[in-house]
Design a protein around this nucleic acid. Structure first.
Lengths: 341, 341
DNA sequence: TGCTGCACTGCAATCGATTACATAAAGGTT
DNA sequence: AACCTTTATGTAATCGATTGCAGTGCAGCA
């Protein structure tokens, strides 16, 4: 009934050549005579032949895929990075396996399964806080495929990474606010153990210091990059006696949560508070007010990380750790306004 | 230098058994005596053995992966569906290969490569408008893996699909608006050739008809589900002499674009117009105003589609076409208000 | 003519695991 | 004791493509 898929021997028989020749005609066309090549291609076309990837990969000792470890696929922030990775991969013949490291079922043990050469030729990690146990296994070369971190990175820097200039972003944000005359500037941070949080906080603190301003600990709200964290911070802000007149939110999502919660309490942005976000996700330009924010080149992050990884895979021995830092850009919109104190 | 990965023969040697026994101890433990099994497991543990998937897949005649065809990974709307798929897959040992069908480089020919048993054991398509050429190849069984459509589907219904009750969603939206006293209700649609557009439009039209209302063609704006389409529609709306007092936007994104553009022109929602969206993406509850919208169970869509596909793969011959329709829900928030003359 | 070199092509081993089949040992039955 | 089951394990073929090596034929050259 079901006509089974043609294999290389079928093509060889039809073309009247050996399987070796078929294989060569298909993957290294310049090594076979033109006439033979044409015969083979015609035969392949006629039979509808498609190479069996398992067989090829087994023989070639590769998998033809890389895995991308994403903390929460559902987060729109990551999707554009994935798009960048896809674009880069399309230039090679490598596929993208997406794995969510924060799914409920994801035991560390399970993530480990992916960090193995039989699974993937390489790995792109968007999650900087993978458990140490995993990372140490990954870094001790034995059969472990190359890993590149994108966006986030590991504090100890054992791996190559491609990231945005987060510190500079933090500085740009507060510099903008200070430039508008704000003197008390607050901040909503990301998770405490997150490298992005540290970098952005550090950049912001330094930016403030350079302008003779300080960061009042009472004006620093602990968040986790989510909408809800922003809303929560708003409630704290509302309860303050001395409210900062401007706020640097370390993610756009938190900015939206914050602004939204304030709006529900009759406080307006930028009328009463100025807000700067971070990321420049798509909705930022259409939020009300349109959000002033620090743009990360997300697509480019994915693209660069994937290219770097493909490179590493090609020359299968380049343990040199490279750190690529991409510049960020302040996008001024309507959520910030001169201090009118 | 590089200690090569242990293979099954290494484990067999260490355990003093044949490779057959190792294989069985690992994948069908109950067929091996307990003592042997323990010896084998210990040996596997000790050598750090990991099965080579290419070899296994070659022998088992499967690929261990499904591909998900996504139109634009960058769209946050799809990410939660992917999360649902991931969850379902984690129950089996199948991986998820994500392919963006709308990337610039994506020629139809290239998409075709994925619709082949040597690539994937099955396919989930989130893109209902794949070219006919592709679909016809896919539906003529010869070596083509099973396909399930999720969210979208094909007009001719040659494939199983899991989708939301879009028509009902359209009806809920206009029923809500009509219930608030609005008599002139407009709409921003999705792309003309999209099945979702048709279903939602049909449901809305019917809902209006049942309430003695009609849809003025001048109040129907052609969109494409994007933010920009919403903003564009707003400009048209602004130019109208007779403006509808309420609008059903067939996606949340278009609703945001519309509201934002109106806001820039001093028109307020819901003060001057009431708006209902569709999807209930995360930001909807934090937009200003919080958006009244029709919620689609996106995670569940992915989950169900994946489960259905796994089913099809398991019993490798069930060409029965199943259509699963999941219910939607109207979420009333602040973007709609009673008509006030 | 004989030799060398080059361009093609074929033979057969190989990648690593799975599994049909064969064999062996142990237990049960009469 | 002879025979049948059942359970456990090993042997070797197999999945399909790739590629090192060897062989063939022909052109060029002395």
């Amino acid at each position: 009934m079901e006509p089974k898929a043609p294999k290389i021997t079928d093509v060889a028989r039809l073309a009247g050549v050996s399987t070796a020749t078929v294989s060569r005609a298909l993957s290294k066309p310049e090594t076979v005579a033109e006439s033979t090549r044409n015969t083979v291609l015609a035969a392949a076309e006629k039979t509808g032949y498609r190479v069996n990837l398992s067989a090829r990969n087994l023989r070639r000792q590769r998998t033809g895929a890389i895995v991308v470890l994403v903390p929460n696929i559902g987060n729109p922030f990551f999707s554009e990075i994935l798009a960048g990775i896809e674009t880069a991969l399309s230039e090679s013949d490598i596929n993208m396996l997406v794995v969510d490291t924060r799914q409920a079922h994801m035991k560390p043990q399970l993530v480990l399964e992916y960090l193995h050469a039989t699974r993937a030729d390489g790995i792109i990690a968007l999650d900087g806080s993978l458990p140490d146990a995993i990372l140490s296994v990954a870094s001790t070369g034995a059969g472990a495929p190359p890993i590149i971190f994108a966006c986030e990175w590991t504090p100890r820097g054992e791996f190559s990474s491609v990231r945005a200039n987060n510190a500079h972003g933090g500085e740009l944000a507060v510099a903008h606010l200070a430039g508008l005359g704000h003197r008390t500037i607050g901040m909503i941070t990301g998770p405490d153990d997150n490298v992005l949080t540290h970098a952005r906080t550090k950049g912001a603190a330094q930016g403030l210091a350079e302008r003779g301003l300080t960061l009042d600990p009472a004006h620093v709200f602990a968040g986790d990059f989510s909408l809800d964290a922003g809303a929560l911070a708003a409630q704290v802000w509302l309860g303050l006696r001395q409210r900062p007149s401007a706020l640097f939110c370390q993610s756009d999502q938190m900015a939206f949560g914050f602004i939204s919660e304030l709006a529900r309490n009759g406080i307006s942005v930028p009328g009463d508070v100025s807000i700067v976000g971070f990321d420049d996700i798509a909705i930022a330009q259409r939020f009300i007010p349109a959000l002033t924010t620090v743009r990360q080149p997300r697509k480019k992050l994915g693209l660069s990380a994937a290219r770097l990884l493909i490179d590493h895979i090609g020359t299968n021995a380049s343990p040199a750790i490279e750190t690529t830092i991409l510049e960020v850009e302040l996008i001024v919109r309507d959520s910030t306004r001169a201090f009118a104190g």
